[in-house]
Design a protein around this nucleic acid. Structure first.
Lengths: 199, 199, 199, 199
DNA sequence: TCGTAATCGAGACGGTACGTCAGGTCTTAAC
DNA sequence: GTTAAGACCTGACGTACCGTCTCGATTACGA
């Protein structure tokens, strides 16, 4: 029998949004992206995998890009926080190294890369990615750099935004095109842009 | 009228590949990408626009990515040649500025960006892009840098490949995510990486 | 305007099969066959004419043969019923004459002929045609003959099935090959096979 | 090497029609029809199997139906000749039994059935089949019946053409729809239509 | 003897239809 | 009001044949 005893039925939502369904969708999207690539990331497949109706997805997310943004924001807040208080030279360099590892090793890094790629294919994605992820994070990163610079921890040769682009750009570029992103690269870029290690 | 003057009849190919059809496909793909974005770049649409049968496309190109690669290679050889002989500091800087303009203003630049994006979505694309475009061009660029460095024209702080990634990466990254790519950025990056302008 | 008055909106099906779509497909298939022949009877054309998506056709019918079978069964039940109760000699002869007219004049007759033809081209069609149409109808016809015979209304020279083949065969054969099927032919065959008219 | 000794090279046609190509096409069509059915009988497949260029087919035959007619005419003249001189009751019955076997067992019988079927799908085929095969053969058959009748060998209840339709029709009908065509059926029909066997 | 002409295999070409898949909208029925 | 389910139209996918065409090689005939 498929429908077991009545009381064992999962307590379906009724009137309010079903948090279980929301999480199932986010995880399904994440898993599909990591396991089978962006090409396999269809709304249909997400619904199938999450055990959720397509309509439930369309009701809550205007597009699959927003699903990915949701997972990206939640995951990168948890697993790649921007050092906020009293950043030292080592904190900053550590963050950049973490970022490189995030890009290549973390499932959420794949999500970020997929969104950057999709941003090129679709202007709407570019806007939303900037608005919901890149801009807020950049604000935090700029703040980190400014504080570290003010504290004399680092001596950037360029202004903060250019500096960040100059480090993040190459890492993302290499990750996007299927090249490796060795820690050495981060150190080389950081060394050149943040000033020599003190000592 | 459909049948114009007899002598103006198109000399159809017969047994050999029809160059007119080949060019029609390349141009149609290019135009569609620029005008309506990667999402509109379907084989069906290319065939429609080129006035060509779908089968003709599938006969000669294994995927639309290869079509884009063909246009990219032909166009960027013409419009963005890598300075080869006796590169000076100014030649090198000029090339990088041209590259930035190519990315944002040239239709073929859109093709490159689309391919970089697609490389993230599909590993096969990544391989082919590296193999047919990025690697050969990088070889020329490395050569340019090495010669300029040997001639004392520039004094890069990092090894040639890292230097190139450090300039190209940020430009591509900003172009991909829908940010602008100001000439200032090129100059700032070049100034930092190629050494100070002589004077 | 595309959205007319709210109340005139077609009440689309939702979760259940759309009867309007089903009928549109059956009629479109019928019309196309009659108007342009079997060659024009493509799934694409049926979908176009019925204003229905191809997928809707493939969802409900495994092949266009089954579409034709559906129309044939519904139409010939309505327009060519087999006389069931107390068949007289005249009833039987009338049915056979009706059958001849059905073959040549009724749209559904064209459907039957098309299916008989297609049965030769494809064994699967042969099986389904037998199973869904010919066998059930033959059962009724055999019953009719047996009753009429038992009542002394007719005196067939051969067993019922052979008798039926001996009348139906020539009619279908002539219709198939583009010859005419004159009422005289029916009468001649019936006279020879069912015994002389009483009186 | 693929091309063996030079002298073993096939002596290609030059200026006149290549009889080998003609036969290769006829046999290929026949074989394909018997082995894989009418659905597999495409011009492309015939050309492939015959080792012949499509153009060679289109040069000599306006359609695949004409190819089948060519094979049918040649084969049935050889393997199912109509008894011409002094037909006896047994000759006539023998011819009808042969016809039944031809329909079911002879490859050329499959060709005839395929053409009868196709005649229903396409009026052009109906005309050509009548004109090139059915009418001439019917003329011979009618002649046979008339002579046998004049000689007192048989006593048909109906006029010759109706009689022939009445025998041929059921046989073809059953063969078309995938039923068997037992010899008994021929005998029953013949007995009923040609008069009782003389004793 | 050599050009003219028709043949042949090969296969590119613009098309149409195939049967499948996903997109995004809508309706139902259960909760 | 929300859910899973799924029918619906749309449109692209990559493939198979259609019938037309052009090619280059081959062979026969006639000036």
């Amino acid at each position: 029998m498929s429908a077991a005893s009545p009381q064992s039925r999962r307590p379906r939502s009724g009137n309010r949004r079903d948090e279980a369904a929301r999480l199932a969708v986010l995880h399904a999207a994440d898993d599909l992206l990591v396991e089978h690539g962006f090409g396999a990331l269809t709304v249909e497949a997400i619904a199938r995998r999450a055990g959720v109706a397509k309509q439930t997805i369309y009701r809550w997310w205007p597009s699959k890009v927003e699903i990915l943004l949701d997972t990206l924001i939640e995951d990168s807040a948890k697993r790649l926080p921007v050092p906020a208080l009293e950043p030292t030279a080592e904190t900053v360099r550590g963050y950049l190294r973490d970022f490189a590892r995030f890009l290549t090793d973390d499932p959420a890094g794949k999500v970020l890369l997929a969104l950057v790629a999709q941003a090129q294919h679709d202007p709407g994605t570019a806007d939303r990615l900037q608005e919901r992820y890149l801009r807020p994070r950049r604000d935090q990163e700029r703040d980190m750099l400014t504080r570290a610079s003010a504290a004399g921890e680092i001596t950037p040769a360029l202004d903060p935004d250019t500096t960040l682009d100059a480090v993040v750009g190459p890492l993302v570029y290499r990750a996007l095109t299927g090249s490796d992103v060795p820690p050495d690269l981060v150190d080389a870029l950081a060394g050149n842009l943040l000033g020599p290690r003190r000592g």
